[in-house]
Design a protein around this nucleic acid. Sequence first.
DNA 1: GCCAACGTTGGC
DNA 2: GCCAACGTTGGC
Length: 154
Amino acid sequence: MRHWLMKSEPEIFSLDDLAARPGQIEPWDGVRNYQARNMLRDEMRPGDQVFFYHSNCTVPGIVGIAEIASEPRPDPTAFDPESRYYDPKSDPASPRWYLVDVRYIRHLRRVISLAELKTYATGALEGLPLLRRGNRLSILPVTPEQWAFIGALE
DNA sequence: GCCAACGTTGGC
DNA sequence: GCCAACGTTGGC
C-alpha cells in the first residue's frame, strides 16, 4: 500500500464536499499533468492512503484522510467537449488521461498547515515533495515514514 | 493582486 | 530540437 497527498482547492472541491458525496466517493477527474498522470495510472491502487490537502486558500494544509477506491481508468471528461477538462487530442482508443475514485475517510482533528509542515523541512520531512520549491503537482507521493510522522502531528 | 516556478505550445 | 511566449499553479 502506498501513500499520497492530493491537492484540491476548497472553493472548488473541499473535503466537506467529498464527505457529502453519495457513498463519500468522487472520481478524481481533470488531472492534466503527465507526471501526476503517470503516478495515478501506474502506481495508485485501491486501498492506498491519501492526505487530503487544501490549496490556494487562507490556510493551506492537510485537512483529512481519504483513500483510493478504484483501479485507475480513463478519464471520461477528456472526451467530453462540454467538459472544462476536454482534451481533443486524447484518443478514446488510447486514452491520454486517467482518474481514480477517491473515498472520504475522516477529517483530521485539526489542520496541519503548510507552515507547520515547513518547520520540519530540514528535519523529519526533508525531501517531502510538497515542500520542494516551485512544486505544483496536484498528486504527490508520501513515504511511509513521512506518513507516520505527519500523522503523529495530529 | 503579485509573482516565482514550471509545463506546454508552436514557430523556426 | 531550440526556445520564446504564454498559461497555470499556488503561496503570500
